[in-house]
Amino acid sequence: MRVLRAQDVGKVLLKGGPARVNEPVSPRFRPGDRVHTRTINPTGHTRLPRYARGRRGVVDRDWGVFIFPDSSAAGRGAKPQHLYSVRFEARDLWGPAASARDAIYLDLWDDYLDPVEVGGSAAAPPDTPHR
């Protein structure tokens, strides 16, 4: 069992505990892509808030490859994958009473997202099979 000692506190705090992973994982989405969040109800840890499940948004930025908390928190490994900033229009989350101008940005991992089918035809299938 590792115990944090007083003399190590400063060092440990400065070092931090990065969640970014240096692994060559391909992104499934690019900025500008329309995405649909999955409707999931895991019993364990997840970072996909209920209010954003089953909603449509647009990928704003790709932050790179990060540990997937749903998997790592359950002791099932890091399952590294791309993390994106996804923009949701306030009205797409809360309905017409919300401001038409406002938006909510969430950081979401590949495993939470499906492509939105464009123009009636299915979008290109993801490179990496998920599930």
Partner: peptide
């Protein structure tokens, strides 16, 4: 209701201003 919360903090934003709420769901 970000505009309502901002109002309670004393920030009144004109309708023309876009409010972006950032929910810190990751390590960012």
């Amino acid at each position: 209701d970000p505009r309502g919360v901002l109002g309670e903090f004393g920030v009144a934003l004109p309708d023309g201003v876009e409010v972006r709420v950032w929910d810190s769901t990751s390590e960012v």
